[in-house]
Design a protein around this nucleic acid. Structure first.
Length: 149
DNA sequence: GCCAACGTTGGC
DNA sequence: GCCAACGTTGGC
């Protein structure tokens, strides 16, 4: 059982979108480190903090659960997709995605600014300087601490 | 809209 | 394999 943090811009895909759909594939990730997490490590049943980036304010808004392990991201070979990558093909997929399902939306968004104030979270990837990774590992301690806020 | 930090590309 | 140039992320 692992814990993750998934970033999404709410103007593109928000927790409410996930809630409404129930589950969805986490497509469009075009970063190798994040891809490797999805392809190699994310397992059905893992829980993820849902983070709204480029939001006002940015912060953690809920929980999602991995519902399907990594498989090729078909948007990467769709020339009409904004995530198209000519170097990816069905025969030789470069990018992967997982499916996630809605678990919970918090009664309030926990702002990034607030998270920065907790000593318990000082080592969180999210709070490290220059951290842009869209899929991050979270420790059980961090996950439990945040879900109790 | 600005810009710092980071990742990728491609010439050499 | 180096590294400059460029593109993207994401907070502010």
């Amino acid at each position: 059982m692992r814990y993750w943090l998934l970033k999404s811009e709410p103007s593109t895909f928000s927790i409410d979108d996930l809630k409404q759909k129930g589950s969805d594939h986490w497509d469009g990730v075009r970063n190798y480190q994040a891809r490797n997490f999805m392809r190699d490590e994310m397992t059905p049943g893992d829980l993820a903090l849902f983070y709204h980036s480029n939001a006002n304010p940015p912060g953690i808004i809920g929980i999602a659960k991995v519902s399907k392990k990594g498989y090729p991201d078909h948007t990467s070979w769709d020339p009409y997709s904004p995530y198209f990558d000519p170097k990816s093909s069905p025969e030789n997929p470069r990018w992967f995605m997982v499916d996630v399902e809605f678990v919970e939306k918090f009664p309030r968004l926990i702002p990034l600014e607030e998270l920065k104030g907790f000593k318990e979270l000082e080592n969180m990837t999210l709070l490290q300087k220059g951290s842009r990774l869209s899929i991050q590992k979270v420790t059980k301690q961090e996950f439990d601490f945040i879900t109790k806020l």
